[in-house]
Design a protein around this nucleic acid. Structure first.
Length: 357
DNA sequence: CTCGTGACGGTTGAA
DNA sequence: TTTTCAACCGTCACG
């Protein structure tokens, strides 16, 4: 039963979301940006039509980890084959390439790496050998099982990548977001939850112009297929073409000074030279939340806001506020708030003009 | 009014 | 190959 088409649902604020799936990156980013601009969470919530609980969570995570990305979804955390065990296996294999899986198993016990209750089965060891240690030449460093270190040295750079269909210039998109970033030793790249997030639902298929992006071929999203595409296929193909990388990769490190966040924010704002955020800037990189053993490819797609707002309707988008049914009684009365509102609108307009006022 | 929290219904994906 | 099931998701409602 996969849902064949996941339709989005509408929350109390009129925002669209997909139950069980993370909000699109674009929105997550906006949340953080707005917060950086000093806008209060409750206002962000209203503006972006995202529940305050979610805004709160995203912001809290951001403050804590520096990442705007959602946590790793799905998969299983290694139960017996912990990173430490994998490392030991790798070592054994390295020192004796001809070693048998059962011998490895015995050594794990002998060396105290595992005890009889958690030692991996021979078949698990074989799988590990095959999947994680295939080629010893590749340094894969899995990290410890521990979750995220609270203090992060990481910084992420965050690019704004709002690809849009409309912008042919999207060439950059080729590899944008999701690229992996590293933090210390843990790094996994995570990217978007695949193509189907709210963006799709919104009907914005603006994903990108495939044509514009040569590399992105795999993406051909049509709304129709995303649904199917995304599920059945396997890893490598999915998502964005080459973007997907194995977690192993951790080579990229961003060592930026701590302030980068702040700097980026404004930058974004400025970038607004155009309304869509087609920022062709650097590819995006986000730090992951911390511990994951899994990674995801990046994706691009979040034309979402671009699409939404795009065009001449920035305002419109905002004004959408009152949605369909309901005539507006909902409006909160204070003039003041109204004021703010407007201001906000412009600000958050996203890629929009820096004119914040 | 704000916002932290956690139940809830949902999806995902390595094992 | 199919099934498990723990991890995460965002919303909602409570306080």
């Amino acid at each position: 039963m996969q849902m064949e088409q996941t339709y989005g649902e509408v929350n109390q604020l009129g925002g669209v979301f997909v139950n069980g799936r993370p909000l699109p990156n674009a929105i997550r980013i906006r949340i953080v940006e707005l917060a950086q601009l000093g806008i209060r969470p409750c206002d962000i919530s209203r503006q972006l039509r995202v529940s305050h609980g979610c805004v709160s969570k995203i912001l809290a995570r951001y403050n804590e980890t520096g990442s705007i990305l959602p946590g790793a979804i799905g998969g299983s955390k290694p139960r017996v084959t912990t990173p430490n065990v994998v490392k030991s296996i790798r070592d054994y294999k390295q020192s004796d390439p001809g070693i048998f899986a059962w011998e490895i198993r015995d050594r794990l016990l002998a060396d105290g790496v595992c005890d009889k209750y958690n030692v991996p089965s021979v078949s698990s060891i074989s799988r590990i050998l095959r999947n994680k240690i295939g080629n010893l030449s590749q340094p894969s460093q899995y990290e410890s099982t521990k979750p995220s270190p609270p203090q992060l040295p990481y910084n992420h750079v965050y690019p704004y990548s709002y690809p849009n269909a409309m912008s042919p210039s999207g060439a950059k998109l080729g590899n944008p977001p999701g690229v992996s970033v590293t933090a210390g030793h843990v790094s996994l790249s995570r990217a978007w939850p695949s193509v189907h997030t709210v963006s799709n639902i919104l009907g914005i298929r603006a994903f990108m112009d495939p044509t514009a992006i040569p590399g992105a071929e795999s993406y051909q999203p049509k709304m129709e297929d995303w649904a199917s595409v995304n599920r059945p296929t396997f890893p490598s193909a999915h998502g964005v073409s080459g973007i997907e990388k194995p977690p192993i990769e951790a080579d990229i490190k961003y060592t930026q000074p701590s302030s980068n966040l702040s700097s980026y924010v404004p930058a974004c704002a400025y970038s607004a030279t155009n309304q869509y955020g087609v920022y062709s800037g650097p590819a995006g990189n986000y730090v992951t939340t911390g511990h994951h053993w899994q990674s995801q490819g990046a994706s691009l797609a979040h034309p979402n806001n671009g699409a939404m707002m795009h065009g001449p309707n920035i305002h419109t988008a905002m004004s959408f506020k009152h949605s369909p049914r309901e005539a507006g009684d909902r409006k909160p009365p204070s003039p003041l708030s109204k004021h703010q509102h407007e201001a906000l609108s412009s600000v958050h307009g996203l890629p929009l003009p820096t004119s914040a006022s």
